[in-house]
Nucleic acid binder design. Structure first.
Length: 940
DNA sequence: GTAATCACG
DNA sequence: GACGTACGTGATTACG
């Protein structure tokens, strides 16, 4: 129970908005987790909201909280506040207050008293008062705490409470783990907490039926208050407002605004019964809490966690991987080859081993091996150092702690790594595979936890890195890498980390990976995405490892010559700009360009970016240039060259590997929400092609002497897949006949003949086709084509009339996303769309466009992946020695001996065009165009 | 670290 | 009737 504890400057009072939380917990669990079926007692009493509520309370009061709460600090005082049933004083002010609220859901009603019981079971004060809302009680206690100099944390995300925020009072959203302080309020509403009352009075609130002033939203309200200082001043001087509509509204709804202000102003002087010192947090009775949760609520996992925390239960060692606590005492350093051999025998017996290589470089091609960690049984993990600094004096017995050589260690590990009956588990195993292949060990039989997570949870904002996965699935935060190697100047390579520190980090990685594997594998199987993992992403790891190792040759001299050329031309443009501007400034700074163009020179038509700065983006400058502003054209030319030089000619040279003379990118297999790959360090998927200068950079990508580069790319793959998926007869037919699909679209939509078609009409049709794939909007199409929105709307309308199947596909896809929470590619890859039910229209519509696009883009990605997996075997079958080097979404680049070029191109084309089969028989043909040459530019 | 910009599919 | 918008990426630079 709560204890008497004086409240002073060192105290911190948590005030939980209980009522609001019940609704949130209920909706989250019921909507997304099938709460009503999963959370109920044997007698049928629903408990989903109680469960969510208890989880939150536990997180708040135990040590299991997140980083955000860590920042706020632990509570010393605590209360949970509820709305009292019945009306509040606000109904006397306005009888329509909250009149539009519908009755709470049937399944929620019986949970109201249970949540209060739960609060008491936690030993926490439970506050409510007739005639007042929870918010008023919170406001009063926050005031009392502030008067005592204490800090207050309001656990809620309700904007009605934001008026209470001060330097010593913050809000905390436990579901999003977000701190809402003064700054956050300003970011969200454009006005500080002290203005929130006036803001709300103007905006109104449809959920509480607070009227406000019609037509005024947050943006306008913030602007008006900024200009006039306060609501009173604004209303008094309303006749000064320039915008007719707004002025009339403010005058007409003056009384509404004043009433709204009364309604939204919280009562900070409620005659509360409890003094602040009555709310002191006392150590709580784990046993009593567990009894309530188990016996009365019939929960399982939560009481188990509370038992463990309270020392009521010794965790079992044989249960689920998550149940074994992660404990560094189970980790060991291996110096003795004999022990390593013995452990490999154990791995053979278990048939599974999690491994992780530690190196001194994130770029695998440049990395030296520092050590290898592994784990065979959860909780026990080992680190074999092979490349740490000479003698590690930090060890207890440096003399007898001699690390074995890399060769010795790898020799002992090798049989296990090559044995397909022993499963090797890794997190982002591509990296380890590369390290080992560079040392002539080709791992056979592996699973990748990152890719299992990607298959199961693709599309969720959460990422698939090990730290994230561990936190999410094991509730354990691993030692951060940065903590081991340091940051900034003091950062050292892993080899310089004392073995005594390194082994714990390394062993933990293996331990965590092994545990994650069990959880993620069953998760992928249960959610029916295991096939995607098993047939596409997992086999791809090996293929991509070889591509990364192969790299692509880049002509350094060519690049540096190009760099010089660009530099010269940039200087000329820079001089011209400075001449016109009449002063020198930094052309790389958009801010300075904006100041010169729209400030000093006073050019018209300036647009603002979302942060209020002048936009100097290309389309803005192009408009200015078209209107005769020579300086805009000069800036554009300069910027184009600066981009090419900075991002490509100069940076690419840095990436040429000193030993191989080639550029080895890293492909990421789990970065995108659609199933595509991405390329980084350097990114070789965005090498210029659209401009003449840009294409000169492609000329620097070359084959070895005697070889050629072949580039093979799918023609219109996404449009073809759209035609197939949405079953659009005329489009399917057009693809079969090999027609120009954009011209054909133009003919259908604009009713013009194919013969002698105006190129600009075709261009517009092409833009529509792309727009369709992106989840078209009139706004977007209008902007892209530089036409009016009305005209764009008309185009879209005609398109949908001509191809009604497309509209139907879009509607069905969005509906499917709403029902399931994800969309699927033709091959069953899922992309989750968590925002599909968002309240904010812009967020929701964004999710809808993603839902439309992901199956198309993702199915194309699947097909390319299927092709990539088959290419090596197909080449081998034809005794061709070609190597795959790059993938650029719909294009594969390979290098082969010149005398094999034609045959290689034919094999490549065959594999790619047939990559959808046999799993799928498409209603459209896939067409691949292949070219070859002495550079990537020539091959394209 | 974030924002702006721009390279690609 | 208003929201505020094309889909998916990564690298560079300035700037606080």
């Amino acid at each position: 129970m709560a204890q008497t504890l004086p409240l002073g400057p060192d105290s911190r009072l948590y005030l939980v908005d209980g009522s609001a939380y019940i609704f949130r917990a209920f909706h989250v669990l019921d909507r997304h987790a099938g709460g009503s079926e999963r959370f109920q007692k044997k007698d049928g009493t629903p408990t989903s909201a109680v469960f969510g509520f208890c989880n939150m309370l536990w997180k708040l009061v135990s040590d299991a909280h997140d980083a955000a709460q860590e920042e706020i600090g632990q509570p010393t005082h605590f209360a949970v506040v509820f709305d009292h049933s019945g009306e509040s004083f606000r109904n006397a002010l306005y009888d329509e207050y909250k009149a539009n609220r519908s009755a709470p859901p049937e399944d929620l009603v019986p949970q109201f008293p249970l949540v209060r019981d739960a609060t008491r079971a936690f030993g926490l004060p439970c506050l409510e008062m007739a005639g007042y809302e929870a918010d008023d009680i919170i406001a009063t206690h926050a005031r009392l705490a502030e008067e005592k100099g204490a800090e207050t944390v309001i656990v809620s995300s309700d904007k009605d409470l934001m008026q209470l925020i001060t330097d010593r009072t913050v809000m905390f959203d436990p579901m999003k783990n977000r701190i809402i302080d003064r700054q956050a309020v300003i970011e969200k509403f454009g006005a500080g907490p002290e203005r929130m009352i006036d803001m709300q009075a103007l905006m109104g609130d449809s959920t509480d039926n607070v009227p406000g002033v019609p037509g005024i939203g947050p943006k306008t309200a913030a602007q008006l208050l900024e200009d006039y200082g306060s609501l009173d001043a604004l209303l008094d001087r309303a006749d000064e407002i320039k915008q007719k509509k707004r002025r009339e509204m403010l005058i007409a709804h003056r009384e509404d605004a004043l009433l709204s202000r009364q309604l939204v102003t919280l009562d900070r002087h409620v005659p509360v019964e409890e003094a602040p010192e009555d709310l002191g947090l006392s150590p709580f009775d784990h046993a009593a809490l567990v009894r309530f949760l188990e016996d009365e609520m019939e929960f399982n996992t939560l009481p188990k966690r509370i038992r463990e925390a309270g020392g009521l239960e010794v965790p079992t060692t044989e249960a689920s991987p998550a149940a074994v606590p992660i404990d560094q005492n189970g980790y060991e350093i291996i110096f003795d080859p004999k022990i390593l051999r013995a452990l490999m025998a154990e791995a053979e017996e278990h048939g599974i081993i999690a491994i992780d290589t530690e190196t001194d470089n994130l770029e695998g091609m440049k990395a030296n091996l520092c050590g290898i960690s592994f784990s065979i049984v959860p909780g026990k993990a080992y680190y074999v150092p092979v490349g740490h600094g000479q003698t590690d004096l930090s060890l207890d017995d440096p003399e007898h702690s001699q690390q074995m050589s890399e060769a010795t260690a790898l020799d002992i590990l090798k049989p296990v790594l090559l044995d397909p009956s022993i499963l090797k588990v890794g997190q982002n195993l591509k990296y380890d595979l590369l390290i080992l292949r560079e040392r002539d060990i080709d791992v056979v039989g592996y699973d990748d936890t990152m890719l299992l997570s990607y298959a199961a949870d693709c599309g969720f904002a959460s990422l698939h890195g090990m730290d994230e996965l561990s936190k999410r699935h094991l509730g354990h935060e691993p030692i951060p890498y940065k903590e081991i190697v340091g940051t900034g100047k003091k950062q050292k390579t892993f080899g310089d980390v004392p073995i005594k520190d390194a082994y714990i980090y390394a062993a933990e990685d293996a331990d965590v990976t092994l545990r994650l594997h069990t959880i993620l594998k069953s998760r992928a199987i249960e959610s029916q995405v295991y096939t995607v993992y098993e047939t596409m992403d997992r086999p791809l790891v090996s293929v991509i490892t070889d591509m990364e190792r192969a790299g692509i040759k880049v002509d350094r001299d060519r690049l540096s010559a190009l760099s010089g050329e660009f530099a010269q031309r940039m200087a000329a443009h820079e001089a011209a700009v400075h001449d016109i501007a009449g002063e020198r400034f930094n052309l790389a700074s958009p801010k300075q360009i904006g100041d010169i163009l729209f400030g000093k020179l006073g050019l018209p038509g300036g647009k603002k970016t979302k942060t209020g700065a002048w936009s100097t983006a290309a389309d803005t400058l192009e408009t200015l240039a078209a209107d005769g502003a020579e300086i805009a054209q000069e800036i554009l030319s300069h910027r184009g060259l600066a981009k090419l030089k900075g991002t490509y000619t100069d940076a690419l040279s840095e990436s040429i590997h000193p030993k191989t003379g080639r550029v080895h990118t890293s492909f990421s297999l789990a970065s995108t929400t659609t199933g595509r790959l991405s390329s980084n360090d350097p990114n070789l998927q965005n090498i210029p092609i659209r401009t003449e200068d840009g294409r000169k950079i492609r000329e620097a990508f070359i084959p070895e002497d005697g070889n050629v580069l072949i580039s093979a790319d799918y023609s219109q793959i996404e449009l073809r897949l759209l035609a197939h998926i949405a079953e659009i007869g005329p489009l399917i037919e057009a693809f079969h006949q090999g027609l120009d699909i954009h011209a054909m679209t133009a003919a259908e939509v604009f009713g013009v003949p194919l013969e002698g078609m105006d190129p600009s009409i075709r261009r517009q049709a092409k833009a529509i086709n792309f727009g369709i794939i992106y989840g078209i909007s009139a706004f977007g199409l209008a902007r892209n084509l530089g036409i009016g929105r009305d005209e764009a709307s008309l185009f879209i309308k005609r398109y949908f009339e001509r191809f009604p199947g497309i509209k139907a596909y879009m509607d069905e896809t969005i509906e499917g996303a709403r029902v399931h929470g994800y969309v699927e590619t033709l091959f069953g890859r899922r992309s989750h769309t968590p925002n599909i039910k968002a309240k904010q229209p812009n967020i929701r519509m964004g999710a809808e466009r993603q839902a439309i696009n992901a199956p198309i883009q993702g199915s194309a990605a699947d097909i390319v992946k299927r092709a990539m997996i088959r290419v090596p075997a197909a080449l081998a079958a034809h005794r061709l020695s070609a190597k795959m080097l790059l993938q650029v979404h719909d294009e594969l680049v390979v290098e082969c001996p010149a005398d094999q070029a034609d045959e290689t191109a034919a094999v490549l084309k065959d594999v790619m065009e047939g990559a959808a089969g046999p799993a799928l028989s498409l209603s459209v043909p896939l067409v691949v165009e292949a070219g070859q040459g002495a550079s990537w530019e020539q091959a394209h």
